[in-house]
Amino acid sequence: MTAISLTVNGKVVSGNVEDRTLLVHFLRDHLNLTGTHVGCDTSQCGACVVHVDGRAVKSCTTLVGQVDGASVTTIEGLSQGDQLHPMQAAFRDNHGLQCGYCTPGMIMSAVDIVQRHGGKLDEATVRHELEGNICRCTGYHNIVKSVLDAAGRMSTAQAAE
């Protein structure tokens, strides 16, 4: 067993876990944060993407011990109460999801993409950067539209701050 302590969505959590525990299993099974999904479990599909110290990583390919002391944000930590994060709102407004299974990972990756590229995002960049997230429903069209829409909203929100 390993003693761990990390911050998840702003709250400090600690406990003893089996050494083999993957971050995604810690989030889902220990913290009941089931918004983060296990899709392929082979680090290809991106349904499990969360932010670790601000970087979008695949939680199915991370042992929880590796993120001891880190700050983790999951899809549950994005909204401010009832107010959706601009990326979540953009996915809703642009019909950026169908079955929704890939959506939490898509949104976490997309937030990271916008944070890295800011206002310089174009469609080709979004499509290229989303290569680690697989969606089997939408054909990506409305996902890309959502990310570009959110990029605009996020830079407006930042400018207003």
Binding site: A56, V57, T61, D112, E129, E131, G132
Partner: peptide, 9 residues
């Protein structure tokens, strides 16, 4: 290499 999430780690 890989995709953005893989490149972070």
């Amino acid at each position: 290499i890989g995709d953005p999430a893989v490149r972070y780690r």
